[in-house]
Nucleic acid binder design. Sequence first.
DNA 1: CATTTTCGATACGCAACCGTCTCGTTTCGT
DNA 2: ACGAAACGAGACGGTTGCGTATCGAAAATG
Lengths: 202, 202
Amino acid sequence: MATTEQTQTSRPAGRPRSARAERAIIEATLDLIGETTGLGELSIEAIAARAGVGKTTIYRWWPTKEDLLVDALATLKAPLPPLRGRSLREDLIACVEVFRREERDARTRCVLNIAMNQAERHPRLADRVRQAAIEPRRAVLTALLRRGVATGELRADLNVPVALATLIGTVVWYMRCAEDADVSGDLVEEIVDQLLAGLAPR
Amino acid sequence: MATTEQTQTSRPAGRPRSARAERAIIEATLDLIGETTGLGELSIEAIAARAGVGKTTIYRWWPTKEDLLVDALATLKAPLPPLRGRSLREDLIACVEVFRREERDARTRCVLNIAMNQAERHPRLADRVRQAAIEPRRAVLTALLRRGVATGELRADLNVPVALATLIGTVVWYMRCAEDADVSGDLVEEIVDQLLAGLAPR
DNA sequence: CATTTTCGATACGCAACCGTCTCGTTTCGT
DNA sequence: ACGAAACGAGACGGTTGCGTATCGAAAATG
């Protein structure tokens, strides 16, 4: 071995990698992820091409990409959860089942993506999406929960907004991050029942 | 009035707007949102500029934008939730409080964005993020819940994965979609207590 | 001091989109 | 039949980012 070992492992000689530069790059990346990741990839040209339409036709009717998105997203989610059954438990299951099913469709999933992630970058868009897609459902669910309190099916001191987040958030998280997402068909019932009964023993 | 009214309101004369084109555009937009919205906005040039670094330095060490993202995101979330207290309830509150605090920071929020939204578009990236950021926490929380079952602080027939989704999903949803997000300081306690006790009366 | 490697900077050709514009065509009302 | 407006297609200059290459300076080894 003709190589010289100065400390432990031989260093290849030459200017070493700059730790400062590396840190600066990582920092800049983190800063920019939050600022820039958004709807930028969506191009009017691609939309026109896929729709088999001239760009002119798009620009004629929608001045802004955001306006087009608002109109497009408005065509989803519009049908609110359907009618109601005979018990609170059944109604909750029906509602959560709607959420579960929608979380399996890429189109409706992106509605929540925008509502949840794009609030700062596209406040106008996110607001309109929330207003059109989230708010009606929140209203329905809130009424449902209040009714449950009134009928005694729910505890009298229920924190309705928290309960609401509990129902929606659980199924959304499960669908998006659980490793066994969606395998079981009676997942929804299990969620609702466990939420109703509580995690602690009675 | 010299204008002619053929049906109800006067139409300006000329070829009318094509409903077929409009529908095609909306459809194409919806299809493409799900396919394209992602990390495309994040540019190497911007990173280099903000870091005060030559592009060369980035390309030298990270062959792909994705590789850079993996390294960058690995520097967040790394510190798992801290030690544990004396009761299950306190430990749960501590954990959920960590989630709540992280949901207020744009940087750590984007970790979940990627894990939850980019699974199809960037499976390698999303997988590594989940492995590095989500999995350790899931393990800690799972152990915590099992311990609770063992000590009798939780019901014996607890569905642990669902309970887990319940804890994380609720606070994430609340932070991202509730109108009064984060105003109350004891939101976390309220969430945990309501989850433990259940929505139904005892 | 000579060598080696990284550094920041800058320039290159290439590609994708932007938003505007001009075409010739199509589809209406009159 | 005629005029009016929207249509699909595509050309336009301009901007942005890509990934590569070249440059002299800086920082380590020997």
